[in-house]
Design a protein around this nucleic acid. Structure first.
Ligand SMILES: [Mn+2]
Ligand SMILES: [Mn+2]
Ligand SMILES: [Zn+2]
Ligand SMILES: [Zn+2]
Lengths: 139, 139
DNA sequence: TTTATATCTAGGAATGATTATTATATAGAA
DNA sequence: TTCTATATAATAATCATTCCTAGATATAAA
């Protein structure tokens, strides 16, 4: 898509088919994707794309502020389109990740604490998700 | 130490020299230790201890509520003696981890959100620590 | 349009923290 | 002291992520 190229160019990101396919994967999924999930989605547009390239693109997009890395899962990273700051919830049963609809309290938006300068904050909740509470099967 | 054995027994943790050495490593260091740091500290008391055993003990201590796992660093876990809930700060320059002396706001202590049941919360800040701001050398 | 070049990519190897396996040792109960 | 469930040591396996490099290509300049 032409407009997607524009978005990347505005961020000084060199436009390549691989990068477009990664961007579109997030645009379509709208959730939290692992590197492997991005890889599989991108392959539909660019079959020859390599996983190493996906990692490289994810790193680049995060550096440019397009994506945000989430380390709530103890085994691997997830990525999402950067939007308003919000916390995340990880279900110990089904391992799904949810956005938490709770205002991020102002104290967390401070940019300094104990003399340290803060440039990012991540809030992670762990427990049992609503779906699993209702007896739904493990994914 | 006899009293350390008592603490473990009360938690139904079988007392072994390896477990005592791991417990004492945290008792002495009082900070946030990686598995490898625990391993090296424990070796001073039990030279033949294996890294696998350290991981096994860390998992056991966490399950019994003695330790808490911290995944603020993107590469490896850290562990600390469980105490009052608090946030953590990770310096992008020196990679040190600091406790954050800021009250954990009450909204974060809720035990349910969006229909999910919460049993744990982790708050991670990232940025530049006070020491690095003052021009101290990278560790 | 052609050219130049800085950057990107594919493929494969390497890394490193963590987990799994299994034979042996042992803490704690009887 | 004997018994047995559990812990340990040593080692191999896992697996997400990073590193490496030769060749490809997007973009800016000519
Ligand atoms: Mn999110
Ligand atoms: Mn702490
Ligand atoms: Zn769930
Ligand atoms: Zn620092």
């Amino acid at each position: 898509m032409q407009q997607t190229s524009e978005i990347l160019r505005e961020l000084k990101i060199k436009v390549t088919p691989q990068r477009l396919s990664v961007y579109l994967a997030f645009n379509k999924a709208r959730g939290h994707l692992s590197a492997d999930e991005v890889y599989r989605a991108a392959q539909k547009k660019v079959p020859a794309i390599s996983l190493g390239t996906v990692y490289s693109i994810l790193e680049n997009f995060c550096a440019k502020g397009l994506l945000r890395e989430i380390k709530i899962d103890f085994n691997k990273s997830f990525y999402e389109m950067k939007k308003e700051p919000h916390h995340h919830f990880s279900c110990r049963i089904c391992n799904k990740i949810f956005d938490v609809h709770m205002p991020v309290c102002s104290a967390l938006r401070t940019n300094t604490v104990d003399g340290h300068i803060i440039d990012d904050f991540q809030g992670y909740f762990y427990g049992t998700c609503a779906g699993c509470l209702n007896g739904k099967k493990k994914k």
